[in-house]
Design a protein around this nucleic acid. Structure first.
Lengths: 346, 346
DNA sequence: CTGAAAGCGCTTACAG
DNA sequence: CTGAAAGCGCTTACAG
C-alpha cells in the first residue's frame, strides 16, 4: 500500500482537472481517436458512435483544448487581420465583418496594426506566422519582398483586402480604387466644374490610386492642373480637412470643386467652409470618399463614394474559409465595386 | 542497413521542419530545460549559459511555439477584450490602447463583441475561457451571475474597464459615469439653463449612470422634469441625434438645453438644428459626451466631457499585466477622471 | 544552478 | 470503419 491515498487512484502528476477527450471517449465507450474524428465531423465514423460521442460531449460539457489541437495538428484557429490603423472607421468596419464571419465557425480574428509601415508589417508577420495561423488577411498588395516571401513560404492561406488585381494565384476581395477616383472626378466634370482640386492625407497606396484615377480623368478632359493636388502625409482627420480647405480657398481661389480622398477630410472641409462663409456647392463644391458615418447628415449632405467595407470583410473572410478548408474558390479575386453617391454638396 | 536513407538519420515520424527548443539547447550545449529557463528569463541560470542560449536563439532564428507553451504551462498569451461594439469609436480607442500595451510584451488582445447582450457575453466567456487566456478585460460590471462565477472559477486575472467601484477585490480602470453626468448638468445650470433635456440612446448601464447623475443634479436644483428625458433604446448614431433633436424641438418647445449622452448624437443634433434654423446656443444649447472626433470642429464647437479612453485601456492593461505576473497592484481600482470641455455650443 | 523523466491534450500516420 | 502507438514542442515537478 505504501501509504498512497486509496481514493485517488487516477491522480496524475500534473492533472489540470480539465475534462479531456479521453473522458469523452470513455463515457461514449470508444477510443479517443474515434471521439476526435467524430468531433471534427470527419466522415468515416459510424453514425451510432458519433451520436454517442456527441451525447458524451453534451453531458460532460467538454470543450476541446485549442492549444493541444494546434500543437498536434500544426494549425491553430487564429487568423491575423493586418490593417493600417484602428482609428479609421474604414478598417474597423472591415475587421468587424471579418470577425462576424469567422468567430461563429470557431476561428479567432487577431488584430494586427501596421501603422502604414511595411517594416512594421513584416515584423508583425514574423510574429504571427510563428503562431501557425490558420489563415491570413492583409490590406492591399504593397509590402516588403521579405513579407511576401514569408507568407508564401509559410503555406498559410492569405487573402488581400481593399484592392483588386489581375495577377493570377493571388486571392483578393476589394474594388478598384483607381476607378472610384476616376468616377468621382468624372461626376464633378459632368456637374460643370473645371478647377477641381484633389486633397489627400496619409498618402497610402490606395489614396494614391484614387489620385491616379482623378488625374487620368482630368487629363482626358484636358483640365488637369498639377497645382491643384494638395497632398499631405499627415494622418487623415476632420481637423486636417478643415485646414486643407482653408489653405485651398486662400491659395487657389480659382478652385470650384474639391475632391477629398476621405470623408473625414471632406466633413472637416464642409465645416470649415461654413465657418468661412464659403457657400457649398455654390462657391466650392465638396466631395468625399467612403461614405462614413455622418456624411449624409452634413449641411449640405456630402457627395461621396460608398465603398463596400463590410462586403470586403465578409467576402474576404469567406474566401479565406474556403482556402483553409482546402477548397480554392473558383474566382480568386472578388470585385465588390463601389457606388457614386451624389448628394447636395456638389 | 535495411534500405534506410543514410543521410537522414534524424528523420522523425512527423517532423515539421521547425526549429525547436532542443535545437537551440543543442547548439548552446545545454539541456532543453535550461534553455527554456534562460529564454523565459527565469533567474537561477548561470549568466554564461544564458548568453550561450541567447546566441543560439539569434543564430538559429528560433521562435517559441505558443501552442506548445500554452499546452505545457496551461496558460496562453491570449487576452480577450470584451466590448459591446466595434462600431463605437469609444471602444475601438480602448481596444487600441490595450493592444498597444499588451502586444509588445508578447500578449495577444482578442476581440470579443457582446452587442450589449449579457447572454452573448456569457457565451463568449465560455468560449474564451476554454482557450486558457492569460488574462481578461471586460466592460463594466453588469453581467450575468453565471458569467461572474465562470470568471471567478477560472482563476484568470480580470480587469473591468470604463467604470469604477468601491467593491474590494475587484480590479478596474475607469471613471465615474454618474459624476460625469452630474458635472455636465451642473455646467448647464450654471450657464443659466432651466429646461434641460437629457437625450440618450442604447440605454446601456453607463448611459443610465450618466442619466442618474443628470437627474440628481437637476433634482438638487429643483428643476428636474421627467418629461424632458428622451430615452431611445436604438443604437447611438449621428442620424438618431438629428431625429431626437427634431422631436424635442417639436414636442418640448420650452427646452433651452439638451444634454446628449454621446457625441455622435450631439453632432447629429447640432446639424439638425442648423437645418431647422434653430440657433445654438441662443435658442437651444447642446452638449455631448466623450469628445469624439469632429466635436471640436462642429459649428459651433461642441461642449462635451472628455473621457479617458486611451488612458483606461492603458491603465487596465497595465494592471492586468501586473496581475498576470503575480504582482497584485496596490490600488485595485484606478479612477482616471474626466474633463468637462466647454466650447461654444452651450 | 542543472537535468532526465513525465506530462499537457490533442491528432497523425500506420495498421488492421 | 476503428484503434494502439507515437509524437507535436514545450514546461512542471522532482532530484541532485
Amino acid at each position: 500500500m505504501k501509504g498512497k491515498p486509496l481514493n485517488k487512484p487516477d491522480t496524475k502528476r500534473r492533472s489540470s482537472g480539465r475534462i479531456t477527450l479521453s473522458d469523452v471517449a470513455k463515457a461514449a465507450g470508444v477510443s479517443p481517436i474515434t471521439a476526435s474524428r467524430a468531433l471534427r465531423g470527419e466522415r468515416g465514423v459510424a453514425p451510432e458512435l458519433a451520436d454517442r460521442v456527441r451525447a458524451a460531449v453534451q453531458q460532460l460539457g467538454y470543450v476541446p483544448d485549442p492549444a493541444a489541437r494546434a500543437l498536434a495538428s500544426q494549425r491553430s484557429v487564429q487568423v491575423p487581420v493586418l490593417v493600417p490603423l484602428l482609428s479609421n472607421a474604414l478598417f474597423v468596419d472591415v475587421l468587424d465583418a471579418v470577425h462576424r464571419v469567422l468567430f461563429p465557425l470557431g476561428y479567432q480574428a487577431l488584430i494586427g496594426v501596421t501603422h502604414y509601415d511595411p517594416q512594421e508589417e513584416e515584423q508583425l508577420l514574423r510574429t504571427y506566422l510563428a503562431h501557425r495561423p490558420a489563415g491570413l488577411l492583409v490590406t492591399g498588395f504593397d509590402r516588403t519582398e521579405n513579407a511576401r516571401q514569408m507568407i508564401a513560404a509559410s503555406g498559410v492561406p492569405c487573402v488581400h483586402l481593399m484592392e483588386v488585381t489581375a495577377a493570377a494565384g493571388v486571392y483578393c476581395a476589394g474594388f478598384s480604387q483607381h476607378d472610384a477616383g476616376y468616377a468621382m472626378a468624372e461626376h464633378l466634370l459632368q456637374r460643370g466644374y473645371r478647377h477641381i482640386a484633389f486633397a489627400a492625407a496619409q498618402l497610402d497606396p490606395r489614396t494614391l490610386q484614387r489620385a491616379e484615377g482623378y488625374r487620368r480623368c482630368l487629363k482626358n478632359a484636358g483640365v488637369y492642373d498639377a497645382k491643384l493636388e494638395i497632398l499631405s502625409p499627415e494622418p487623415s482627420s476632420i481637423r486636417l480637412g478643415a485646414t486643407l480647405l482653408e489653405e485651398i480657398v486662400r491659395t487657389r481661389p480659382q478652385v470650384d470643386a474639391i475632391f477629398f480622398c476621405n470623408d473625414d477630410l471632406a466633413q472637416g472641409g464642409l465645416l470649415a467652409a461654413q465657418r468661412l462663409g464659403v457657400a457649398v456647392p455654390a462657391q466650392v463644391a465638396i466631395a468625399g470618399f467612403n461614405d462614413l458615418a455622418g456624411s449624409d447628415q452634413m449641411v449640405p449632405p456630402l457627395t461621396t463614394v460608398r465603398t463596400p467595407r463590410a462586403a470586403m470583410g465578409e467576402a474576404g473572410a469567406k474566401m479565406l474559409l474556403a482556402l483553409m478548408r482546402g477548397h480554392p474558390p473558383e474566382n480568386n479575386c472578388v470585385n465588390l465595386g463601389f457606388e457614386l453617391t451624389v448628394r447636395q454638396s456638389t
